[in-house]
Simulated scan of single mutants.
Amino acid sequence: MKFHYLLLLLSIAFITSCSSHKKINKLASELNCNKSIEFVFDKQSNLVKIVKTGPSIGESKIPDYESTFVAAVEELQKSMNTKLNVENTFGFPTDSVVRVVVKIEKIEWNFRAADAIMNTEINFKVQNREFPITGTNTVYWHGTKKGNLHKSLKSGIYQFLSLYCNQ
C-alpha cells in the first residue's frame, strides 16, 4: 500500500512540474506579433555560471546555453502564429523583421525542501530599448541544468514576446 501511495505522489509531482511548461505553450499560441522576430544570442551569455543555493543531490552536465536557447525558441515557434528564429550574426534592419539581441545576465538555481526554482535573468534589446526579464522554472522532483535552463529561457522568451507584441 505504501508503494502505491509513493507512486501516486510521484505522479502528481511530475504532472504539476509539467503544467506551467504546457501553459506557456497555450498562452504563446494566443500571441500574434505583427512582424517576424529574429533573436541574436549574445556570446557573452556563455560566460555566466549557474549559481546553486540550498541543499541539492548530484550534478548534471553544464548545458550549451546557445543551443538550449535555440531549442526554447523553436519550441515556442511551434505554438505561435508569429515567425521566430535565431540568427548567428547581426543583420540589417528591415521593416518586416524585428531583431532582438538576447543576453543571459544571471542564472540562479534555488533548492528548497520540496522544490527547486531556476531563475534566469535575460536582457532583450530591441534597437535602443531594453527589456530585463526573469524566466523561471520550478521542479518538484528531479531536474537537470539543461532541462531547467530550457524551461526558464522559454518562460523568459514568452514574457518578452508578451510585453513586446502587446505594446
Rank of each mutant, 00 (worst) to 15 (best):
V70N: 04
D95Q: 06
N119L: 08
S79L: 00
F92A: 12
K61P: 07
S79Q: 13
N88D: 12
T120F: 07
N110L: 07
Y140S: 01
K103N: 07
C33F: 03
N148I: 04
F14L: 15
N137Y: 09
K61E: 14
A114I: 14
K106A: 07
K22D: 11
S79T: 07
S17G: 10
S79G: 05
S60I: 05
K23T: 13
F14P: 04
T136N: 10
K106C: 07
A72P: 02
S79H: 01
F90E: 08
S36T: 00
C33H: 02
R129A: 12
V98K: 10
I15Q: 09
T16I: 15
L47C: 08
K43D: 14
K52L: 13
N85Q: 14
E121L: 13
W109S: 14
Y140I: 03
G54N: 10
R99P: 01
P132M: 00
N85P: 02
Y65Q: 10
I57L: 13
T16Q: 12
C18T: 11
N137C: 02
N46S: 14
R112Y: 08
V51I: 14
E38G: 02
F124T: 11
T144H: 00
I122M: 08
A116L: 01
T120Q: 03
S45H: 05
G54H: 12
E38S: 10
A71C: 00
E66H: 11
F131R: 02
I37C: 00
D115I: 02
H21Y: 14
I24T: 15
I24F: 01
T134A: 02
R112I: 04
S45T: 08
L31Y: 04
S56F: 15
K35Q: 14
E108G: 07
N128P: 08
F111H: 15
A114S: 12
H142E: 09
S56W: 12
K52V: 14
A114W: 07
I50D: 06
Q77F: 11
T82P: 02
K23G: 06
K103T: 10
I50H: 06
E87W: 00
P132S: 04
N32R: 06
G91D: 03
T134Q: 04
M118T: 09
A71W: 01
T82Y: 04
T136E: 11
S17R: 04
V98I: 15
T144S: 12
E74W: 03
R99F: 06
L76M: 04
V51C: 06
D64G: 04
K145M: 08
E87C: 00
K43I: 15
G91H: 01
I15M: 09
I15D: 05
N85L: 12
K83C: 08
V126K: 07
Q127Y: 12
K83G: 05
F69R: 04
N110R: 12
I133R: 00
V139A: 08
E74L: 09
V51H: 14
Y140D: 00
K22Y: 13
I133D: 03
K61L: 13
S45C: 07
A116M: 03
S17D: 13
D42L: 01
V73K: 03
T94F: 00
V126R: 07
F111A: 13
P63K: 05
V126E: 11
